[in-house]
């Protein structure tokens, strides 16, 4: 099977957000970047699909040279081949998805794994966009996946429960935590990854549909009130919630 996995390169979860000089994006100074956490579940899902059905796993990322680090990590986990769709400009979700869908077509992908969301702009868009652009079914927020004879049975998280979704290949699977336990790259995997090629291709272009006009920090909370240090403060806490905050 031709398995494609989409990975994004994002600021790590500890990042302290500072607004950059343009007033529209994050100041990258001192920020560590990593493989988007949900995409690790996607990579693992892709590798397990290969274990079950054979074939190859190609990992693709759209972005600048820095994204090679994330591609390298995916190779170390066991992906066979990496593609960098080279682009240094700011893109919206659609422009990212368009180029990824074009590559999926060119490659002839039969299943695509991605994360449910990038933890930078928290868009949760790219997987659904790619699927619609390809005319494929998609399943988002997937926590369980079975593929048999081209049929997919997946479980996705919704409010207050899970939906059991049936679909057929080809399809886009958007991974949520819980889908699997991503493997750690083995030492051999890390050594092999150094020798595996990262192929660069120009990203296809698309007009910007959604434009960020400003970025700022959320309003800071004025430091709260310490009501007490033991159970005797309970009555006062409940009074404040009832009379001051009016939430109970």
């Amino acid at each position: 099977m031709k398995i494609l996995v989409l990975v994004n390169h994002v600021p790590d979860t500890e990042t302290k957000v500072k607004v950059g000089a343009d007033g529209k994006s994050i100041d990258p100074a001192g920020v560590n970047y990593m493989l988007n956490p949900y995409d690790e579940f996607g990579v693992e899902g892709a590798l397990r699909t290969k274990q079950a059905f054979g074939g190859e796993v190609v990992v693709v990322s759209l972005g600048g040279d820095a994204n090679k680090e994330t591609l390298r990590k995916s190779l170390a986990m066991g992906c066979d081949k990496a593609i960098l769709l080279k682009d240094d400009t700011v893109r919206d979700s659609f422009a990212v998805a368009k180029s990824l869908a074009d590559y999926a077509n060119e490659y002839g992908a039969e299943i695509i794994f991605c994360g449910k969301q990038s933890i930078d702009h928290d868009n949760s868009q790219v997987g659904g966009l790619v699927a619609e652009l390809l005319g494929w079914p998609s399943i988002s927020v997937v926590v369980k996946l079975e593929i048999k004879d081209g049929n997919i049975v997946a479980e996705r998280e919704i409010e207050g429960g899970h939906e059991i979704v049936h679909a057929k290949l080809p399809a886009v699977i958007m991974a949520q935590k819980g889908l699997n336990e991503p493997r750690y790259p083995s030492l051999k995997g890390i050594m092999d990854a150094k020798r595996k090629p990262i192929e660069e291709k120009p990203a296809s272009s698309a007009d910007v549909r959604v434009e960020v006009s400003a970025m700022r920090k959320p309003p800071a909370k004025t430091s709260g009130k310490i009501v007490g240090t033991d159970g005797s403060a309970a009555a006062e806490l409940v009074r404040l919630l009832h009379e001051e905050a009016k939430v109970i």
Binding site: P11, T13, T15, K16, V17, V19, K24, I26, I119, D120, H121, D122, D207, V208, R209, V210, E211, V212, S213, A214, M215, R216, K217, P218
Partner: peptide, 20 residues
């Protein structure tokens, strides 16, 4: 229409406009 949305898990907020 200008929309405000949280980014970086709420550590930042952006204003966005849609061009289409």
């Amino acid at each position: 229409i200008t929309a405000t949305r949280p980014v970086y898990a709420g550590k930042g907020m952006v204003d966005v406009t849609i061009k289409t």
